[in-house]
Nucleic acid binder design. Structure first.
Length: 417
DNA sequence: CCTCCACCGGAACGTGAGGAGT
DNA sequence: ACTCCTCACGTTCCGGTGGAGG
Protein backbone atom coordinates (compact mmCIF):
# COMPACT_ATOMS: atom_id res chain seq x y z
CA UNK A 1 0.00 0.00 0.00
CA UNK A 2 1.36 3.38 -1.00
CA UNK A 3 1.98 5.97 1.63
CA UNK A 4 -0.25 9.00 1.68
CA UNK A 5 2.15 11.90 1.66
CA UNK A 6 0.01 14.51 3.38
CA UNK A 7 -1.04 12.04 6.07
CA UNK A 8 2.56 11.08 6.44
CA UNK A 9 3.47 14.67 7.10
CA UNK A 10 0.59 15.08 9.51
CA UNK A 11 1.62 12.05 11.55
CA UNK A 12 5.19 13.27 11.58
CA UNK A 13 4.05 16.38 13.34
CA UNK A 14 2.58 14.32 16.15
CA UNK A 15 5.73 12.27 16.48
CA UNK A 16 7.93 15.32 16.68
CA UNK A 17 5.52 17.04 19.03
CA UNK A 18 5.12 19.80 16.48
CA UNK A 19 1.34 19.72 16.49
CA UNK A 20 -0.87 22.42 17.85
CA UNK A 21 -1.00 21.26 21.44
CA UNK A 22 1.80 20.92 23.93
CA UNK A 23 -0.52 19.93 26.77
CA UNK A 24 -4.19 20.14 25.93
CA UNK A 25 -5.13 19.15 29.48
CA UNK A 26 -4.34 22.67 30.61
CA UNK A 27 -7.56 23.73 28.92
CA UNK A 28 -9.73 21.18 30.66
CA UNK A 29 -11.97 22.18 33.56
CA UNK A 30 -10.22 19.83 36.00
CA UNK A 31 -6.81 21.37 35.50
CA UNK A 32 -5.35 23.21 38.47
CA UNK A 33 -2.63 25.63 37.37
CA UNK A 34 0.45 26.63 39.41
CA UNK A 35 -0.79 30.16 39.76
CA UNK A 36 -4.39 31.28 40.04
CA UNK A 37 -4.78 34.89 38.98
CA UNK A 38 -7.58 37.29 40.00
CA UNK A 39 -8.91 35.17 42.84
CA UNK A 40 -6.63 36.45 45.61
CA UNK A 41 -9.55 37.68 47.70
CA UNK A 42 -11.35 34.39 47.66
CA UNK A 43 -8.19 32.37 48.23
CA UNK A 44 -7.34 34.63 51.15
CA UNK A 45 -10.76 34.25 52.70
CA UNK A 46 -10.84 30.49 52.35
CA UNK A 47 -7.24 30.21 53.45
CA UNK A 48 -7.86 32.19 56.61
CA UNK A 49 -10.93 30.16 57.41
CA UNK A 50 -9.16 26.85 56.88
CA UNK A 51 -5.92 28.01 58.49
CA UNK A 52 -6.87 26.92 62.03
CA UNK A 53 -6.83 23.34 60.76
CA UNK A 54 -3.02 23.54 60.90
CA UNK A 55 -3.22 24.06 64.66
CA UNK A 56 -5.71 21.25 65.02
CA UNK A 57 -8.69 23.57 65.45
CA UNK A 58 -11.62 22.58 63.25
CA UNK A 59 -12.39 25.29 60.68
CA UNK A 60 -15.83 26.77 60.10
CA UNK A 61 -17.92 25.44 57.29
CA UNK A 62 -17.97 27.52 54.11
CA UNK A 63 -20.43 28.14 51.33
CA UNK A 64 -19.04 29.39 48.03
CA UNK A 65 -21.32 31.10 45.55
CA UNK A 66 -20.78 32.15 41.98
CA UNK A 67 -21.90 31.45 38.46
CA UNK A 68 -20.40 28.69 36.37
CA UNK A 69 -16.81 29.18 35.35
CA UNK A 70 -15.93 31.70 38.06
CA UNK A 71 -13.25 29.54 39.61
CA UNK A 72 -15.04 28.13 42.65
CA UNK A 73 -13.93 24.58 42.11
CA UNK A 74 -10.41 25.36 41.05
CA UNK A 75 -9.86 27.74 43.96
CA UNK A 76 -11.06 25.22 46.53
CA UNK A 77 -8.87 22.52 45.03
CA UNK A 78 -5.92 24.86 44.94
CA UNK A 79 -6.25 26.05 48.53
CA UNK A 80 -6.62 22.51 49.84
CA UNK A 81 -3.58 21.38 47.91
CA UNK A 82 -1.55 24.21 49.38
CA UNK A 83 -2.90 23.56 52.86
CA UNK A 84 -1.90 19.92 52.81
CA UNK A 85 1.49 20.72 51.33
CA UNK A 86 2.14 23.30 54.02
CA UNK A 87 1.10 20.95 56.78
CA UNK A 88 3.38 18.19 55.51
CA UNK A 89 6.26 20.58 55.13
CA UNK A 90 5.84 21.87 58.68
CA UNK A 91 5.41 18.36 60.02
CA UNK A 92 2.06 19.12 61.61
CA UNK A 93 -0.86 16.73 61.53
CA UNK A 94 -2.10 17.30 57.99
CA UNK A 95 -5.80 17.37 57.23
CA UNK A 96 -7.63 14.82 55.09
CA UNK A 97 -9.46 16.10 52.06
CA UNK A 98 -12.13 14.86 49.72
CA UNK A 99 -13.79 16.34 46.69
CA UNK A 100 -17.31 15.19 45.90
CA UNK A 101 -19.21 16.27 42.83
CA UNK A 102 -22.78 16.09 44.03
CA UNK A 103 -24.23 16.25 40.56
CA UNK A 104 -22.63 12.90 39.84
CA UNK A 105 -22.79 11.24 43.25
CA UNK A 106 -26.32 12.20 44.10
CA UNK A 107 -27.32 9.93 46.95
CA UNK A 108 -26.47 9.72 50.60
CA UNK A 109 -24.92 6.31 50.15
CA UNK A 110 -22.71 7.29 47.27
CA UNK A 111 -21.50 10.43 49.01
CA UNK A 112 -20.46 8.32 51.98
CA UNK A 113 -18.88 5.77 49.67
CA UNK A 114 -16.79 8.51 48.06
CA UNK A 115 -15.71 9.77 51.47
CA UNK A 116 -14.79 6.25 52.57
CA UNK A 117 -12.60 5.81 49.51
CA UNK A 118 -10.96 9.18 50.12
CA UNK A 119 -9.74 8.19 53.59
CA UNK A 120 -9.18 4.55 52.82
CA UNK A 121 -11.96 3.26 55.01
CA UNK A 122 -12.61 -0.42 54.33
CA UNK A 123 -14.80 -3.27 55.39
CA UNK A 124 -13.78 -5.37 58.36
CA UNK A 125 -11.97 -7.81 56.06
CA UNK A 126 -9.99 -5.02 54.44
CA UNK A 127 -11.84 -4.96 51.13
CA UNK A 128 -13.22 -1.79 49.64
CA UNK A 129 -16.65 -0.61 50.61
CA UNK A 130 -19.06 -1.94 47.98
CA UNK A 131 -20.85 0.29 45.47
CA UNK A 132 -24.16 -0.76 46.84
CA UNK A 133 -25.73 -3.30 49.10
CA UNK A 134 -24.94 -2.03 52.58
CA UNK A 135 -27.51 -0.27 54.69
CA UNK A 136 -26.74 3.44 54.71
CA UNK A 137 -26.29 3.40 58.48
CA UNK A 138 -23.59 0.84 58.22
CA UNK A 139 -21.48 2.64 55.66
CA UNK A 140 -21.89 5.74 57.76
CA UNK A 141 -20.49 4.05 60.84
CA UNK A 142 -17.63 2.50 58.87
CA UNK A 143 -16.69 5.96 57.71
CA UNK A 144 -17.06 7.43 61.20
CA UNK A 145 -14.95 4.76 62.83
CA UNK A 146 -12.13 5.06 60.34
CA UNK A 147 -12.13 8.84 60.48
CA UNK A 148 -12.11 8.90 64.25
CA UNK A 149 -9.21 6.50 64.39
CA UNK A 150 -7.18 8.92 62.28
CA UNK A 151 -7.49 11.80 64.76
CA UNK A 152 -7.50 14.30 61.97
CA UNK A 153 -9.44 17.15 60.57
CA UNK A 154 -11.16 16.34 57.33
CA UNK A 155 -12.16 18.97 54.81
CA UNK A 156 -14.90 17.83 52.47
CA UNK A 157 -15.65 19.82 49.34
CA UNK A 158 -19.21 19.31 48.16
CA UNK A 159 -19.17 20.59 44.62
CA UNK A 160 -22.52 21.63 43.14
CA UNK A 161 -24.35 21.00 46.41
CA UNK A 162 -27.40 22.73 45.04
CA UNK A 163 -28.05 19.80 42.74
CA UNK A 164 -28.26 17.58 45.81
CA UNK A 165 -31.06 19.64 47.25
CA UNK A 166 -32.74 20.28 43.94
CA UNK A 167 -33.03 16.64 43.05
CA UNK A 168 -34.71 15.81 46.32
CA UNK A 169 -35.25 18.49 48.91
CA UNK A 170 -35.69 16.08 51.79
CA UNK A 171 -32.94 13.68 50.92
CA UNK A 172 -30.57 16.51 50.11
CA UNK A 173 -31.17 18.10 53.46
CA UNK A 174 -30.74 14.74 55.16
CA UNK A 175 -27.35 14.21 53.60
CA UNK A 176 -26.13 17.64 54.59
CA UNK A 177 -27.62 17.41 58.05
CA UNK A 178 -26.03 14.00 58.52
CA UNK A 179 -22.60 15.35 57.62
CA UNK A 180 -22.81 18.48 59.73
CA UNK A 181 -24.11 16.52 62.70
CA UNK A 182 -21.31 13.99 62.46
CA UNK A 183 -18.96 16.24 64.40
CA UNK A 184 -20.91 15.68 67.59
CA UNK A 185 -20.51 11.93 67.14
CA UNK A 186 -16.76 12.02 66.64
CA UNK A 187 -14.30 11.99 69.51
CA UNK A 188 -10.92 12.76 68.05
CA UNK A 189 -11.61 13.92 64.51
CA UNK A 190 -13.60 16.75 62.99
CA UNK A 191 -15.22 17.34 59.63
CA UNK A 192 -15.59 20.67 57.98
CA UNK A 193 -17.45 21.25 54.79
CA UNK A 194 -16.96 23.54 51.83
CA UNK A 195 -20.17 23.73 49.85
CA UNK A 196 -20.03 25.03 46.31
CA UNK A 197 -23.12 26.28 44.57
CA UNK A 198 -23.81 28.27 41.45
CA UNK A 199 -27.33 29.00 42.51
CA UNK A 200 -27.85 31.78 45.01
CA UNK A 201 -31.44 30.83 45.71
CA UNK A 202 -30.44 27.39 46.87
CA UNK A 203 -30.12 28.67 50.42
CA UNK A 204 -33.88 29.10 50.55
CA UNK A 205 -34.40 25.40 50.03
CA UNK A 206 -32.14 24.42 52.89
CA UNK A 207 -33.44 23.33 56.22
CA UNK A 208 -32.69 26.15 58.70
CA UNK A 209 -30.73 23.78 60.92
CA UNK A 210 -28.50 22.82 58.00
CA UNK A 211 -28.11 26.38 56.81
CA UNK A 212 -27.00 27.66 60.21
CA UNK A 213 -24.10 25.23 60.43
CA UNK A 214 -23.22 24.94 56.76
CA UNK A 215 -23.37 28.64 56.01
CA UNK A 216 -21.12 29.85 58.81
CA UNK A 217 -18.93 31.60 56.28
CA UNK A 218 -19.78 32.70 52.77
CA UNK A 219 -17.45 33.45 49.92
CA UNK A 220 -18.74 35.11 46.79
CA UNK A 221 -17.15 34.58 43.37
CA UNK A 222 -17.87 37.39 40.94
CA UNK A 223 -17.66 36.66 37.20
CA UNK A 224 -14.40 37.43 35.47
CA UNK A 225 -14.37 40.56 33.35
CA UNK A 226 -12.93 40.68 29.85
CA UNK A 227 -9.46 41.75 31.01
CA UNK A 228 -9.25 38.97 33.57
CA UNK A 229 -10.43 36.38 31.09
CA UNK A 230 -7.72 37.51 28.74
CA UNK A 231 -5.12 37.11 31.48
CA UNK A 232 -6.28 33.61 32.27
CA UNK A 233 -6.27 32.65 28.62
CA UNK A 234 -2.76 33.96 28.13
CA UNK A 235 -1.55 31.96 31.08
CA UNK A 236 -3.07 28.74 29.81
CA UNK A 237 -2.00 29.30 26.22
CA UNK A 238 1.61 29.19 27.40
CA UNK A 239 1.09 25.74 28.85
CA UNK A 240 -1.34 24.26 26.42
CA UNK A 241 -0.02 25.23 23.01
CA UNK A 242 3.29 24.93 21.30
CA UNK A 243 5.07 28.26 20.87
CA UNK A 244 3.88 30.41 18.01
CA UNK A 245 0.68 28.48 17.47
CA UNK A 246 -1.36 31.35 18.83
CA UNK A 247 0.55 34.10 17.14
CA UNK A 248 -2.32 36.43 16.65
CA UNK A 249 -3.30 38.62 19.60
CA UNK A 250 -6.77 38.81 18.08
CA UNK A 251 -7.45 35.15 18.78
CA UNK A 252 -7.26 35.54 22.53
CA UNK A 253 -9.19 38.78 22.45
CA UNK A 254 -11.93 37.13 20.44
CA UNK A 255 -12.19 34.16 22.78
CA UNK A 256 -12.28 36.53 25.74
CA UNK A 257 -14.95 38.68 24.16
CA UNK A 258 -17.15 35.73 23.26
CA UNK A 259 -16.88 34.29 26.77
CA UNK A 260 -17.48 37.67 28.37
CA UNK A 261 -20.83 37.70 26.65
CA UNK A 262 -21.59 34.55 28.61
CA UNK A 263 -21.27 36.32 31.97
CA UNK A 264 -17.50 35.85 32.03
CA UNK A 265 -17.46 32.09 32.11
CA UNK A 266 -13.82 30.98 32.18
CA UNK A 267 -14.69 27.35 31.61
CA UNK A 268 -16.50 28.34 28.48
CA UNK A 269 -13.54 30.40 27.32
CA UNK A 270 -11.10 27.54 27.79
CA UNK A 271 -13.49 25.14 26.12
CA UNK A 272 -13.72 27.46 23.16
CA UNK A 273 -9.97 27.72 22.89
CA UNK A 274 -9.49 23.98 23.13
CA UNK A 275 -12.11 23.28 20.47
CA UNK A 276 -10.55 25.92 18.23
CA UNK A 277 -7.21 24.20 18.67
CA UNK A 278 -8.69 20.84 17.82
CA UNK A 279 -10.32 22.24 14.70
CA UNK A 280 -7.03 23.75 13.59
CA UNK A 281 -5.24 20.50 14.26
CA UNK A 282 -7.79 18.48 12.35
CA UNK A 283 -7.59 20.85 9.40
CA UNK A 284 -3.82 20.40 9.38
CA UNK A 285 -3.19 24.07 10.05
CA UNK A 286 -0.13 25.14 11.90
CA UNK A 287 -1.67 28.05 13.74
CA UNK A 288 -4.95 28.75 15.47
CA UNK A 289 -6.70 31.65 13.80
CA UNK A 290 -9.76 33.73 14.51
CA UNK A 291 -11.89 31.78 12.10
CA UNK A 292 -11.10 28.61 14.02
CA UNK A 293 -12.49 30.30 17.10
CA UNK A 294 -15.65 31.30 15.30
CA UNK A 295 -16.05 27.80 13.96
CA UNK A 296 -15.45 26.41 17.42
CA UNK A 297 -18.26 28.47 18.79
CA UNK A 298 -20.58 27.13 16.15
CA UNK A 299 -19.47 23.58 16.86
CA UNK A 300 -20.06 23.97 20.59
CA UNK A 301 -23.45 25.51 20.08
CA UNK A 302 -24.44 22.90 17.53
CA UNK A 303 -23.41 20.08 19.82
CA UNK A 304 -25.41 21.58 22.65
CA UNK A 305 -28.51 21.78 20.46
CA UNK A 306 -28.04 18.24 19.20
CA UNK A 307 -27.85 16.93 22.73
CA UNK A 308 -30.93 18.80 23.91
CA UNK A 309 -32.99 17.62 20.95
CA UNK A 310 -31.81 14.03 21.17
CA UNK A 311 -32.59 13.77 24.86
CA UNK A 312 -36.06 15.23 24.42
CA UNK A 313 -39.00 12.99 25.39
CA UNK A 314 -40.82 11.52 22.40
CA UNK A 315 -43.88 13.73 22.84
CA UNK A 316 -41.77 16.87 22.85
CA UNK A 317 -39.95 15.65 19.78
CA UNK A 318 -43.28 15.21 18.05
CA UNK A 319 -44.27 18.76 18.94
CA UNK A 320 -40.95 20.10 17.74
CA UNK A 321 -41.37 18.10 14.58
CA UNK A 322 -44.76 19.68 14.05
CA UNK A 323 -43.23 23.14 14.27
CA UNK A 324 -40.51 22.05 11.90
CA UNK A 325 -43.00 20.74 9.35
CA UNK A 326 -44.97 23.99 9.41
CA UNK A 327 -41.84 26.08 9.19
CA UNK A 328 -40.74 24.06 6.19
CA UNK A 329 -43.97 24.84 4.44
CA UNK A 330 -42.67 28.37 4.29
CA UNK A 331 -44.87 29.76 7.02
CA UNK A 332 -43.09 32.13 9.31
CA UNK A 333 -46.10 32.62 11.58
CA UNK A 334 -47.16 29.42 13.29
CA UNK A 335 -49.98 29.42 15.83
CA UNK A 336 -50.77 26.97 18.58
CA UNK A 337 -53.89 25.71 16.84
CA UNK A 338 -52.19 24.63 13.62
CA UNK A 339 -49.28 23.28 15.55
CA UNK A 340 -51.61 21.11 17.58
CA UNK A 341 -53.34 19.80 14.46
CA UNK A 342 -50.09 18.81 12.82
CA UNK A 343 -48.88 17.35 16.07
CA UNK A 344 -52.01 15.20 16.28
CA UNK A 345 -51.32 13.73 12.85
CA UNK A 346 -47.73 13.04 13.78
CA UNK A 347 -48.72 11.42 17.03
CA UNK A 348 -51.19 9.21 15.20
CA UNK A 349 -48.60 8.22 12.61
CA UNK A 350 -46.19 7.39 15.39
CA UNK A 351 -48.92 5.51 17.27
CA UNK A 352 -48.25 7.78 20.19
CA UNK A 353 -50.93 8.89 22.63
CA UNK A 354 -52.34 12.18 21.42
CA UNK A 355 -52.06 14.66 24.24
CA UNK A 356 -54.56 17.40 24.90
CA UNK A 357 -54.01 20.85 23.53
CA UNK A 358 -53.47 22.11 27.05
CA UNK A 359 -50.59 19.75 27.54
CA UNK A 360 -49.12 20.48 24.11
CA UNK A 361 -49.25 24.14 25.01
CA UNK A 362 -47.04 23.40 28.01
CA UNK A 363 -44.66 21.38 25.86
CA UNK A 364 -44.40 24.33 23.51
CA UNK A 365 -43.46 26.53 26.45
CA UNK A 366 -40.81 24.02 27.47
CA UNK A 367 -39.29 24.01 24.00
CA UNK A 368 -39.25 27.78 24.23
CA UNK A 369 -37.35 27.65 27.51
CA UNK A 370 -34.83 25.27 25.99
CA UNK A 371 -34.23 27.87 23.30
CA UNK A 372 -35.24 25.61 20.44
CA UNK A 373 -38.17 27.79 19.47
CA UNK A 374 -39.32 31.32 20.21
CA UNK A 375 -42.86 32.12 21.20
CA UNK A 376 -44.78 35.31 21.79
CA UNK A 377 -48.38 35.64 22.89
CA UNK A 378 -50.23 37.82 20.42
CA UNK A 379 -53.80 38.75 19.77
CA UNK A 380 -55.38 38.35 16.37
CA UNK A 381 -58.30 40.44 17.53
CA UNK A 382 -61.56 39.06 16.25
CA UNK A 383 -59.71 35.81 15.52
CA UNK A 384 -58.56 35.14 19.01
CA UNK A 385 -55.47 35.15 21.10
CA UNK A 386 -52.65 32.68 20.67
CA UNK A 387 -48.93 32.02 20.74
CA UNK A 388 -46.87 32.86 17.69
CA UNK A 389 -44.13 30.26 17.28
CA UNK A 390 -40.85 30.54 15.40
CA UNK A 391 -37.92 28.18 15.06
CA UNK A 392 -34.98 29.50 17.05
CA UNK A 393 -32.32 27.34 15.43
CA UNK A 394 -31.60 26.48 11.86
CA UNK A 395 -34.24 24.32 10.19
CA UNK A 396 -31.52 22.28 8.53
CA UNK A 397 -29.98 21.23 11.80
CA UNK A 398 -33.25 20.32 13.45
CA UNK A 399 -34.24 18.44 10.33
CA UNK A 400 -31.00 16.47 10.37
CA UNK A 401 -31.33 15.55 14.02
CA UNK A 402 -34.96 14.55 13.81
CA UNK A 403 -34.24 12.61 10.67
CA UNK A 404 -31.68 10.69 12.68
CA UNK A 405 -34.44 9.35 14.88
CA UNK A 406 -35.55 6.17 13.17
CA UNK A 407 -39.18 6.41 14.31
CA UNK A 408 -39.58 9.98 13.17
CA UNK A 409 -37.69 9.31 10.00
CA UNK A 410 -40.29 6.74 8.93
CA UNK A 411 -43.27 9.04 9.25
CA UNK A 412 -41.42 12.13 8.05
CA UNK A 413 -42.09 11.59 4.36
CA UNK A 414 -45.83 10.99 4.50
CA UNK A 415 -46.37 13.94 6.83
CA UNK A 416 -44.28 16.31 4.79
CA UNK A 417 -46.34 15.84 1.67
C1' DC B 1 -67.50 51.15 22.93
C1' DC B 2 -68.75 46.46 23.02
C1' DT B 3 -68.23 41.64 21.53
C1' DC B 4 -66.36 37.56 21.09
C1' DC B 5 -62.68 34.49 19.14
C1' DA B 6 -59.09 31.11 20.22
C1' DC B 7 -56.34 30.40 22.85
C1' DC B 8 -53.51 31.37 27.58
C1' DG B 9 -52.36 29.69 31.91
C1' DG B 10 -53.73 28.70 36.92
C1' DA B 11 -55.68 25.04 39.88
C1' DA B 12 -57.09 20.70 41.25
C1' DC B 13 -57.07 16.16 40.42
C1' DG B 14 -55.81 11.17 38.45
C1' DT B 15 -52.39 7.65 37.61
C1' DG B 16 -48.56 4.67 37.49
C1' DA B 17 -43.65 4.06 38.62
C1' DG B 18 -40.23 3.91 41.91
C1' DG B 19 -38.20 4.50 46.72
C1' DA B 20 -38.18 4.41 51.68
C1' DG B 21 -39.74 2.40 55.73
C1' DT B 22 -41.35 -1.48 58.42
C1' DA C 1 -44.01 -8.54 51.19
C1' DC C 2 -46.37 -4.81 52.34
C1' DT C 3 -47.93 -0.09 52.71
C1' DC C 4 -47.10 4.72 52.24
C1' DC C 5 -45.06 8.77 49.82
C1' DT C 6 -43.49 11.37 46.37
C1' DC C 7 -42.99 12.74 41.57
C1' DA C 8 -43.46 13.22 36.82
C1' DC C 9 -46.68 13.41 33.47
C1' DG C 10 -51.38 14.29 31.92
C1' DT C 11 -56.21 15.59 32.12
C1' DT C 12 -60.37 18.40 33.17
C1' DC C 13 -62.29 22.55 34.13
C1' DC C 14 -62.42 27.25 33.77
C1' DG C 15 -61.76 32.23 34.44
C1' DG C 16 -59.09 35.64 31.80
C1' DT C 17 -57.84 38.57 27.78
C1' DG C 18 -55.89 41.94 23.47
C1' DG C 19 -57.70 43.76 19.88
C1' DA C 20 -60.29 43.39 14.86
C1' DG C 21 -64.63 43.98 13.51
C1' DG C 22 -69.14 45.44 14.08
Amino acid sequence: MGRDRSLDKLFDKYIQGQGIFKDGNALRPTYVPEVLPYRDDQMGRIGSILGPALRGTPPSNILCYGKTGTGKTVVSRYVLKQLVAKAKESKVNFPLTAHVNCRIVGTNYRVLKTLCDAIGATMADGSDVPFTGLPTDEIRSIFKKKLDSESKIMVVVLDEVDSLVKRDVNQGNDILYGLTRMNSELDRSRISIIGISNDLTFKDMLDPRVLSTLGEEEVIFAPYNAVELKGILEQRVEIAFNPGVIGDEGVINLVGALAAQEHGDARRALDLLRTAGELAERAGDERVLQNHVRDAQKVIERDAITITVKTLPMQSKAVLFAVYVLANKGQSDIFTGECFNVYSEIAKALSLDTLTQRRVSDLISELDMLGLINTTVISKGRYGRTKKIKMAVSKKQIGAILDDDSRLNKVAKEIMS
